[in-house]
Simulated scan of single mutants.
Amino acid sequence: MSMRFEIRQAAPIDASAACALLRRSIEIGGKADHEGKPAVLEAWLGNKTSANVATWFASPSNFAVVAEGEDGSLLGLCLLTQAGKIALCYVLPEALRLGVGRALLDAAEQHARTWNIKKLHLYSPPSASAFFERQGYINAGKDTSCFGMESDLLWKSLEESCELAPGAARKRFCNCNG
C-alpha cells in the first residue's frame, strides 16, 4: 500500500488534530505496551491535551513536524527539543510501515543539525524500539518513563564518523588519520 504525505513544520493550529493523533497512536498502537495496566495508559495520556500540544508546538525551544496526508489529515508527528531529545514521535496505526515515521525522524534530525546538536536521545516503548534501531539509534537499555512504563533509552550520534565499516570505501574528504 502506498500513501502520499507531506512533512511540514507543525503550528499551534494543528494542536487539536495532533492531540487526537497522539491519543489514538498510544491507545491503539501502544496497546502491547500498556495492555492490562490502566494506570500506565492514564498517565501516558495525561498530558496529551490540545492546550499542551499547542504550547509544545509554539515553544521556541522545540521543533515539531507533522506528516500531512493528501486529504489534509495528520498521519504522524515528531517533536525535538533543543536539549537533543526526541520527545514525541508517533504515527497513526493505519499509517505505520509506510515511511511516515522515518520521514518525520529525518526532518527532526536535519533540524537538530541546524541547532548544532551532536547527539539525540529518546525513550521508546518496547514495541517501537526496533523502529528506532533500524534508523541508527543505539539501545542503551531499559529505564522507567515518567509515567511508570518500562521504556528503552535510545541515542544516536549526528556527527559524521571517519571510521569505516569492513569493505566500505573511504570518504573522499575525511579528516581522520589513516
Rank of each mutant, 00 (worst) to 15 (best):
T81Y: 00
T81G: 05
A83F: 00
G84N: 12
G84C: 07
L88P: 00
L88Q: 09
C89P: 01
Y90I: 10
P93T: 11
E94C: 10
E94I: 05
L98P: 00
G99K: 13
A103L: 03
L104P: 03
D106I: 10
D106T: 15
D106W: 02
A108P: 03
A108V: 13
A108N: 07
H111N: 07
A112R: 11
T114Q: 09
N116H: 14
N116F: 02
K118L: 06
K119R: 15
L120W: 06
L120G: 04
L122I: 08
S124W: 11
P125V: 06
S127Q: 02
S129L: 06
S129P: 03
A130S: 15
A130E: 15
A130V: 08
F131T: 08
F132M: 02
R134L: 14
N139I: 11
A140L: 14
A140G: 04
A140R: 14
K142N: 10
T144W: 06
F147A: 10
G148F: 12
M149R: 12
M149V: 01
E150T: 14
S151K: 01
D152I: 00
D152R: 14
L153I: 11
L153T: 04
L153Q: 02
L154A: 03
S157I: 08
L158D: 11
L158Y: 10
E159I: 15
E163C: 04
L164W: 04
P166G: 04
P166L: 09
A169F: 02
A169H: 03
A169T: 11
K171V: 05
N175W: 03
C176E: 10
N177L: 11
